[in-house]
Amino acid sequence: MDAMSPAAPATPAARAGARVPLPYWVRYFALIRPAAITFAVTAIVTIGAVVTSYWKLYGARQHELQAQGARDAERQRFVHVEAEKQDIRTYQPLYVELRRRGFVGTENRLDWVEAIRQIQEGRKLLPLTYQIEPQQTYKLTGPVATGEYQLRGSRMQVHMDLLHELDLINFLVDLRQRGVFTVQDCSIKRATTAGNTALAPALTADCTLNWLTLTTPAAPRHQGGI
C-alpha cells in the first residue's frame, strides 16, 4: 500500500467558488440608496407634520370650545341681566308702594299710632284701645323667598266699641292702606251695657293683628371683654 500524500492547498478559484452569493437586494441597494434615504427623510418629515397638525388642530378645537363656553356664559349673564331689568321695571312700582306703606324698611310704630288716630277721627269711631307687643321674626306656613330681607311681625291687640259691624270693617280697610298686616283673629260681641244715647256702643270687637315688615338682618353686636 502506498503512503498517503499531503493534500494540495486550495486554489483562489476554488476559494471564490466556495463563497455564498449575496441577495440581490443587497447587491443592488447601492443603486437605490439615495432614493431610500430620501424616502425615509420624507416619511419622517411627513409624520412629524401630521403629528404637529393634529396637535395644532386639537389645540384649536380646545380653544374653540373654551371660546364657545365663554360666549355661552356671557350670553347667559346678558339674559340674566335683562331678566333682572325686566323684573325691576315690573316690580318697582309695587316696591315703591310697599315702602310708602312701611312694609319694607325699619318698623315705624309712630306711623301706625298716627294712622289709627286719623282713621278714628275721620270715621268718627268710638274710642278704642290697643297694645303692641315687641317685634319678632314672623314664621310663615310655607317657604317664601325674601332674599337678604327678613320678615318680622309685631302683634297688636285691639279693643273697639262699635255702633255696628261696618265700623270694624271700615277701620281695617283704612288701616290696610297705611301698612301691611294680617288679621290673626277677630271676635265681635254684643255690648253688655247698652246706653240709651245714639252714640252708645251696640257691639264690642277684640282683634289680634300682626304688623309685618321686611327688614335687613341687623349686624351682630360684638361684646368686648377685658
Rank of each mutant, 00 (worst) to 15 (best):
S53C: 14
G195P: 04
Q76W: 03
A7R: 05
V81Y: 07
L57H: 09
P34C: 10
R109P: 05
W211D: 01
L166P: 02
Y149D: 01
W25S: 13
Q184A: 12
D72K: 14
A205S: 10
L125T: 08
V183Q: 07
T215S: 15
K85L: 10
E84D: 05
S154Y: 10
Q66A: 01
V26F: 02
L140N: 03
E114L: 14
R75H: 06
Y28M: 14
R221L: 15
S5L: 15
L175R: 03
E82V: 00
S5E: 14
I32G: 00
V144S: 11
K56C: 00
E165Q: 04
V79W: 06
A43Q: 07
G48T: 10
R109M: 15
S5H: 11
T90A: 13
G142L: 11
A70M: 13
T141N: 12
G69S: 10
I188A: 04
R221N: 07
A83L: 15
G48N: 13
L140Y: 03
K85F: 11
L214Q: 08
A115M: 05
P217S: 06
K124G: 01
T216A: 10
D72H: 13
G195S: 11
Q86M: 08
E64F: 06
R178W: 15
V45W: 01
F103N: 02
T42I: 04
Q131K: 03
G122D: 03
L125Y: 05
T129V: 07
Y58N: 06
V41C: 15
H222L: 10
S187K: 08
I88D: 12
I37P: 02
Q92D: 05
D185T: 02
A40M: 14
R221M: 14
G105V: 04
C186M: 09
G102C: 02
Y95M: 12
D2W: 14
H63S: 15
Q76F: 07
L110I: 09
M4H: 04
R190D: 04
V20F: 00
P34G: 12
A219I: 01
C186Y: 13
V113F: 13
P217Q: 05
